[in-house]
Design a protein around this nucleic acid. Structure first.
Lengths: 181, 181
DNA sequence: TTCGCCATGTAATACGTTACATGATTGG
DNA sequence: CCAATCATGTAACGTATTACATGGCGAA
């Protein structure tokens, strides 16, 4: 999976492992994440499989960088992946909900404070996402050739926003129910 | 993680690996899942760690069963886990959204049919969840000592329902936006 | 001078997933 | 008689996560 991810970003422009990590953290963190260790090792493997090629750029004053670019084979592999539709749902693993499932025996106040803490975290995420919107708009203006891409990026951001709004609403409802118990 | 999961269920009553798999699939599939291979090996390991003990029951006519029960150490370990609150958000990995992010170059109709397929899947899940509700109610009547637990189980089911409703609404909005492109 | 950022990697471990493997019973 | 369900496990592989490891630059 991370392979297609990296291919997808390198399809826009050549990048280093570090750039890819930054890009992932800043633009798709609402639906995916990856560790830098994973990114570097996967890139190496992809080069062995001839999906990418790297160029070592010696930085004068700056740190050295290894810049990866797609090969034709890499571009083809990416296209093949995109063209075969997803026929399953992505599984969910929500630790908070798992903990709540077993929380009947717990002290009411410690459950409540745990839920309040999560409420804070999700509220912060939501604010973050709202902050990204103008960022995307700007991208659209400065690079008109990406106009169509920008529309799709916005749709994925909307998913992040919808998810957090839903989560916050559920937390508030749940907190009220427990308080009333 | 799966360890605490299994401890949590065994805290209600002794069970076999098979029972645990069934229970997980039927009662918490909206926020967690596990493979039977994982369950059996984890149970063995937990027995080595003295968190559970197993009793081999030779089935006359029926298949043999290995029934696991919690030890005091297992019960304590579970309690310790429950008592230390979760301070982070569970990460999301949504393959559909990842694919959509890179879909600007794709044929509009193949994107749309992929989204329609997901719409179907999520609609089916939602219907399934609505089917579980009376099941839980019944559990509450036949085992009054679980009344408090049932309230928490319902809250987790509400999360599943909210999630699917949100997902379906987002899909419908996204489908409309792509159709208008 | 210390913290954070830039930049790269490796190693070890833990966890998840698919596939292999067996065999009895029950219902259509 | 065939498929589904009950019931248990192992093996191989693949991916994720944490920790280790290095070093320069710039700002407070």
């Amino acid at each position: 999976m991370i392979k297609y991810f990296l291919l997808g970003f390198l399809n826009y422009q050549p990048m280093t492992g570090y750039d890819l990590k930054q890009t992932i953290d800043h633009s798709v963190s609402h639906f995916w994440h990856a560790y830098h260790s994973q990114i570097y090792t996967t890139l190496r493997q992809m080069e062995a499989d001839k999906l990418v090629v790297s160029e070592f750029v010696h930085g004068e004053g700056q740190p050295d960088r290894r810049v990866y670019s797609l090969t034709d084979a890499g571009r083809a592999e990416f296209k093949t992946w995109l063209d075969q539709p997803l026929t399953e749902m992505s599984p969910i693993k929500e630790e908070l909900v798992l903990r709540l499932f077993f929380s009947a025996s717990r002290d009411k106040n410690s459950v409540l404070s745990e839920l309040h803490l999560q409420h804070d975290l999700h509220q912060k995420k939501l604010n973050e996402y709202h902050g990204i919107t103008p960022h995307i708009e700007q991208n659209a203006k400065s690079a008109p050739e990406l106009a169509r891409d920008v529309l799709f990026w916005k749709m994925t951001l909307n998913m992040g926003i919808s998810y957090e709004e839903m989560y916050i609403a559920w937390l508030e409802k749940t907190i009220q129910e427990i308080e009333r118990m």
